[in-house]
Structures are given as C-alpha cells and as structure tokens.
Amino acid sequence: MSDRLFGLVVIIVAAGYIFAASLTEVSFLSDPVGSKTFPYLIGGVAILAALAVMLRPDAEPDWPSAGTFARIALAVAVLVAYAYMLRPFGFIIPTALAAGMLSYQIRPRAIAAMLTGVGLSVGLFAIFKFALGLGLVAFPKGWF
C-alpha cells in the first residue's frame, strides 16, 4: 500500500514538474534540444518508474506510530524555528535551545538535555570561531 501511494505521489509530482517545465520561457535563440526536452524526459521516466513501483510494490515498511510521527514533526518545527532565529539572535542562544530540544526528543531527560544544549552551543561556538575562524556572532549586536 505504501509503495502504491508513493508511486501515486511521484506521478502527481512528476506531472506537476512537466507542467512547470512547459511554462519555461522559450528563448528566441533556441538550440536544437531546447530548454524543455530534458525536464520532460526526466518527468516521463519518473512516471514510468513510479508505475513499475505501483505494479510490483515491495513489502510494507514499518511505519512509526502516530506518536513518533508527532515527535518528528515537532523536531522539524524546532529546526525550522532554529533556521529563522540563527540570523537575528546570534549563534549561542538559538543553538542552545534547538540542541537541547532535539536532545530531549532523543532521550527525554530535561536536565541532561539542557546541559547538552548549552554545552554544545558554547563548545561548537568555540570550535567554529577560534579553531576554524568562521565569523560567527555569539549574541545579537548591542547586547553587551
């Protein structure tokens, strides 16, 4: 079932891809192959391969429980928030928060997770800043 669904998703995405490729502006100075041929081919091969997967699906994978999915979704949310915070809030604070939360999700012990977060954040900052010389900013401008 999963493979059939996967095949269907691939076909829908490939069809969308082919449609998006068909919107490519055509250049006045076009070459014999053109901008669209390769994307069409790729989309076409993907659809064929997806059909093959749908016709001969593999055994069902072990999907994690709904609870696990929720935890993975939360991890994605943490990472997205981290991505947005990195620029405005400097390195140390967002990194400590994100690393701590990820650590908590792998092993739910609050204190250990907090220590991991702070330790990683400060330790990595030191490595990147002083050993590799990257221009990281510890805290937002004007805090100290």
């Binding site: 590799l132 010389g133 990257l134 221009g135 900013v137």
Partner: peptide, 14 residues
Amino acid sequence: AGVVLSVGLAGAAS
C-alpha cells in the same frame, strides 16, 4: 564558505 559567514552572522566588523 567562511568568508560569506561574516555577512550572514557577523556584520559587526568595522
């Protein structure tokens, strides 16, 4: 890489 970091993260350079 590293050089661009200074734009991304630093900016405080005088």
